[in-house]
Design a protein around this nucleic acid. Structure first.
Lengths: 145, 145
DNA sequence: ATTATATCATAGTGAAATAATATGATAAAG
DNA sequence: CTTTATCATATTATTTCACTATGATATAAT
């Protein structure tokens, strides 16, 4: 029960972009160096995010990425769902999952309850909350950006 | 971010034993057939549980397992910790984890918060709660045990 | 004692996921 | 037309997962 580096890196990327929201396009290389993440791996993560419209892209020289939506308007559940794929704690909670033992299953309520508390937490927390935290911790450096 | 079958099977095993608490020793073969779990895999799971004292064992013919503690006195966090190993959503929440970027990390609060809501939920829920659910759903069959 | 039964313990194994890395194509700025 | 940066696919090493196999050990019943 661990979240993947894909989700952790992706979140850090979005926080980085969120802290520079409404600025210019930022190239991956800078972010990769700053966040100590492999640029090639970041490229893959970015490609997961792009189709959802959460980031906007400029190709070619002086290109890069920026956050396309207000950090206050996006919550962590949306982000995690994109990056992690599916955030249910076990498979059988998915709609499509057809289990013959569902009627007699006494543990499914445990998993549903767990899913609920996780979902609630992630929905309650906006990207802005994390961005604010980032800004307060990096306040000195922010003047140089 | 999925819980392993080890945890899911282990929970079902404990619920099964919990529903028959204070009865006689039950052999794994019966449980494996009833719960549709590979007996060899269940053996490994049971070996994780044994050293913690949560189950008691009788070896040899007419041997088996039974729950050693009152289901009302054990919560799901204790069970998950035994079965999952460590239930932190990411590595860096562990005491021993030494991260140079900890001071400037703006996402750790996200993970700590998530850990808190999960821990709270699992601590609040006792094995007895799941056992009661099991009993109500299997009431007809319980007369034959 | 011997046999049947059940747990104990270690080793192996196939499939899938993870976390990258490598190579090259494409698009845009200057 | 060169530089810069993203786009896309393929490959790879490592780890984890979910078993499976083999055999040893302990105990009850005969």
């Amino acid at each position: 029960m661990k979240y993947s580096t894909r989700t952790r890196y992706g979140l850090r990327l979005l926080v980085y972009l969120g802290a520079r929201y409404k600025g210019k396009f930022l190239k991956l290389n800078t972010i990769a160096e700053s966040e100590k993440i492999s640029i090639k791996y970041l490229e893959q993560i970015v490609r997961l995010l792009k189709p959802t419209g959460i980031i906007s892209v400029a190709r070619g020289a002086h290109g890069g990425y920026k956050l396309a939506v207000d950090p206050a308007e996006i919550n962590l559940k949306q982000i995690f769902t994109i990056l992690e794929g599916n955030i249910d704690p076990i498979e059988c909670l998915q709609e499509s999952f057809d289990c013959k033992k569902k009627v007699l299953c006494s543990t499914i309520e445990v998993w549903q309850g767990l899913q609920t508390v996780i979902d609630d937490y992630l929905e309650k927390n906006k990207l802005k909350d994390v961005v604010d935290n980032y800004k307060s911790k990096h306040s000195i450096n922010m003047f140089y950006i």
